[in-house]
Design a protein around this nucleic acid. Structure first.
Lengths: 208, 208
DNA sequence: GTCTATACATTGATAGAC
DNA sequence: GTCTATCAATGTATAGAC
């Protein structure tokens, strides 16, 4: 337990009515609503209400409610996959890079990643996203395993379990972290890395 | 990222038709379905189908779909609150007890806790559960703060953030842990405690 | 305790005027 | 690009017979 249901879902008002921008704005409001109430509990009427238009107006911009979800999930997945695309020789350093990258993406694409983490697999769009996420997870797990082989991780913890625990910690950021607070993205990554790698117990003081 | 969408939702078949037991069985199947598809995406017809009865038969046992959710959430919350009910003088030891207790409850009431962690606050039942959960979170945070005051936690990490990170890790167990695997509840708690308190980096070898 | 039948609201989505 | 009007399908829940 422990986390928040933060209401901070303000959509950064892009000037309205300008050509080409309405689509983005509708999508941003949709994603915010999906997070607030859940995708299934959000009706197209809810979305229309919040936007101050009718349902029909929305279907001029998008062909289905599921399309809105799909665009958001694709955004999150593409950003996450990018984190893995610069391999390194040193697996220990790469693990750190992947962890920092995941935190950075989570902060930059907070709404989209939040949505991704809640997908259960209903419908084709969600199923495709789940598969893509599983592939990502698998690649991350390989990085962790290599880091352990190089002696950067305690040998007494199963690398698959370690992966899940650490990314469980990282992913849980979506439940409470909100940009603009005391912690910026870098400080957040520092804290997460320190907690995951060094632990919360005070280290014994090194004799100089 | 990283976790699974495990299908392992088998309901431990209680003998059917015995008086007083049907209610439990219906509830167990309902909770399993709610986890599988999400509460909102699960219709009463879905539940009736899986049970092999009609919708009307279900309304003989329960007055609403929301009541089923409420019973499960209450179960999870009561078990979690029990973890905090034996205070100790030593805050460090109490923190360990709370963490182990949370893992134990999570394993024992895996479906109910999973459901609780996904509640967004739609409807009165969900709102009440969210409030109760916030109270629990607050009490946990106090335990962590006291442990830090007693020197059991690194002084350079904000206790509120530490609480969220550690419980983020614990709560993420609902996304992949399934009983009956290689890890039993105790071994799981050991691994979680070790990771959270000592970290994943190998400790420098102590000179004897 | 389970059934058939049905009430009644809401859902996602479309047609066609302005 | 937005509207009114409308659709078929599905949602929760109830009535009343067996």
């Amino acid at each position: 337990m422990t986390s928040d249901t933060a209401p901070a879902n303000a959509v950064p008002r892009g000037r309205r009515g300008r050509p080409g921008n309405d689509r983005e704005h509708v999508l941003a409001v949709a994603v915010a609503l999906f997070i607030e109430k859940g995708y299934d509990a959000t009706s197209v009427a809810d979305l229309a209400d919040r936007l101050g238009v009718t349902k029909s107006a929305l279907y001029h911009h998008f062909s289905s409610k599921e399309e809105l979800l799909g665009l958001a999930l694709d955004d999150a997945l593409t950003a996450l996959e990018g984190v893995l695309d610069e391999p390194s020789d040193d697996a220990g350093a790469q693990l750190e890079r992947v962890l920092r990258g995941a935190v950075r993406v989570l902060v930059e694409k907070l709404p989209e990643v939040t949505l991704l983490l809640r997908v259960r697999g209903n419908g084709r769009v969600e199923q495709a996203a789940l598969e893509r996420r599983r592939a990502f997870d698998h690649r991350v797990s390989e990085v962790v395993t290599r880091a352990q082989d190089e002696g950067m991780l305690r040998p007494d913890v199963d690398p698959a379990v370690a992966t899940r625990l650490v990314f469980g910690m990282v992913n849980s950021l979506t439940e409470w972290y909100r940009p603009g607070g005391a912690l910026d993205a870098d400080a957040l990554a520092d804290t997460v890395l320190a907690t995951a790698l060094e632990g919360l117990r005070p280290r014994p003081i090194r004799a100089p």
